[in-house]
C-alpha cells in the first residue's frame, strides 16, 4: 500500500521525537550507543508504528508480531521507542544504565515489557528469529518475525548458520534487516573485517535481498511492503544503507560515535542538528509525497 503523505509525515514526526528521546536518554545515562541507535531508529519506528501487530495492553499476546533486536546494544534507542508506545513508563528512561535500574544497556526481555528477546551478545538474534518463525509454523499462527542485525555483527559466524537455516526452512514469515552503517567499534567495517559484497553474501545464502536507503522512511515502507508480498520461498533480507549517528551532524558516519558520552554542550549541538535534520526531512516529504 503506497505511503500517504499524512502517514509519511506522521512517521517522520514520530521518528524525530524518538531521536530526541534517544538523545535525552543518552544524556540521562551519561553515555550510550547513540551512533547505531540513530542509524537504526527509522526502521524500528516504521515497523512498530506502521506494520507490527502488537497490543500494548496485552504485551504477551500470542499472535503479536515479534521484533528481535539482534544488535542489542542499541537498547538506548529501542527503550525510548517501547516507552513511547506505552509498554513501560517513560520515567524509566531517566534510569537507563544507572545502578539498580531495570533498564540496562542491553534490554532484558524478562524486565522490560515489549522486548521479544534479550540480546547483546552479537550473532544471536537471527537464530532466535528463525526459531520464532518456525514456532509460528508449528503452532499454526500467522504472526511475522522481524529481526534487525548490525553490519559489524555480520562478522559473527553464527549469523551464517542462522541464514542457512532460514533458507533451508523457507522462513518466509520472517523479514530480516541489516543496519549497514559501515562502522563498528574499532573502525570502518571494510577496514576491520571486509563485509562486501554483503548483498551477494545474503543472496548466495538463499535470501531475496534488497538494498535501500535505510534512513528513508518511504524506501523502508516500500521495501517492507515488497517483503510482505514476497511469494517466493526465500526469506527476505533488506540491507539498510544507513548513516551512523544519522541526524546529528558531528556524529554522522563517524565510527568513534559507536558509543559516546553526552555533555551539555554536545547535547545542545545535537538537539539543534536534529531539529534541522527534521526540517530537511519534512521538506523532502513535501517534495516527494504522492
Amino acid at each position: 500500500m503506497p505511503l500517504s503523505k499524512a502517514e509519511w509525515l506522521a512517521l517522520e514526526k514520530k521518528v524525530h521525537e524518538l531521536r530526541m528521546l534517544t538523545l535525552d536518554t543518552t544524556k540521562w545515562a551519561g553515555s550510550g550507543h547513540i551512533g547505531g541507535g540513530m542509524s537504526a531508529l527509522d526502521v524500528m519506528t516504521v515497523l512498530y508504528h506502521k506494520y507490527m501487530k502488537i497490543d500494548v495492553q496485552n504485551p504477551k499476546w500470542e499472535d503479536r508480531d515479534r521484533f528481535i533486536l539482534s544488535k542489542g546494544h542499541v537498547g538506548i534507542a529501542y527503550a525510548p521507542l517501547l516507552c513511547d508506545l506505552g509498554f513501560n513508563d517513560k520515567e524509566m528512561l531517566k534510569t537507563f544504565n544507572l545502578s539498580n535500574s531495570k533498564m540496562g544497556m542491553h534490554l532484558d526481555s524478562n524486565k522490560i515489557v515489549g522486548v521479544d528477546a534479550s540480546t547483546g551478545s552479537l550473532g544471536h538474534g537471527m537464530s532466535i528469529a528463525v526459531g520464532t518463525a518456525l514456532a509460528a509454523r508449528v503452532t499454526g499462527k500467522d504472526f511475522k518475525t522481524y529481526v534487525l542485525l548490525g553490519d559489524g555483527e555480520c562478522d559473527e559466524g553464527s549469523n551464517w548458520e542462522a541464514a542457512m537455516s532460514a533458507a533451508h526452512y523457507k522462513t518466509t514469515n520472517m523479514i530480516s534487516f541489516v543496519d549497514r552503517n559501515k562502522c563498528m567499534i574499532d573502525g570502518r567495517t571494510e577496514d576491520v573485517m571486509r563485509l562486501e559484497p554483503l548483498a551477494d553474501k545474503w543472496a548466495s545464502f538463499g535470501f531475496e535481498v534488497k538494498v535501500i536507503d535505510g534512513n528513508n522512511i518511504k524506501e523502508i515502507c516500500e521495501a517492507v511492503d515488497e517483503a510482505l508480498a514476497n511469494t517466493s520461498d526465500k526469506p527476505y533480507m533488506i540491507i539498510l544503507d544507513t548513516i551512523k549517528g544519522c541526524g546529528i551532524d558531528y556524529m554522522e558516519d563517524n565510527y568513534t560515535w559507536h558509543y559516546g558520552a553526552i555533555d551539555e554542550d554536545n547535547y545542545n549541538k545535537a538537539k539543534a542538528s536534529l531539529e534541522k535534520f527534521y526540517e530537511k526531512r519534512i521538506a523532502r516529504v513535501e517534495k516527494e509525497a504522492e
Binding site: 521479544d116 528477546a117 550473532g123 537464530s127 532466535i128 514456532a135 508449528v138 553464527s158 548458520e161
Partner: peptide, 28 residues
C-alpha cells in the same frame, strides 16, 4: 516430522532457534 528440526552441524544456531521456539510457546 513437522516438529523435528535438524539444523545441520551448527550448534550455536540450534540453541538460538530453540530459544526463539521456547519464547513462542514450544518446549524444545
Amino acid at each position: 516430522p513437522d516438529r523435528f528440526f535438524n539444523v545441520g552441524i551448527a550448534e550455536q544456531n540450534m540453541f538460538g532457534v530453540a530459544a526463539g521456539m521456547a519464547r513462542a510457546g514450544l518446549v524444545p
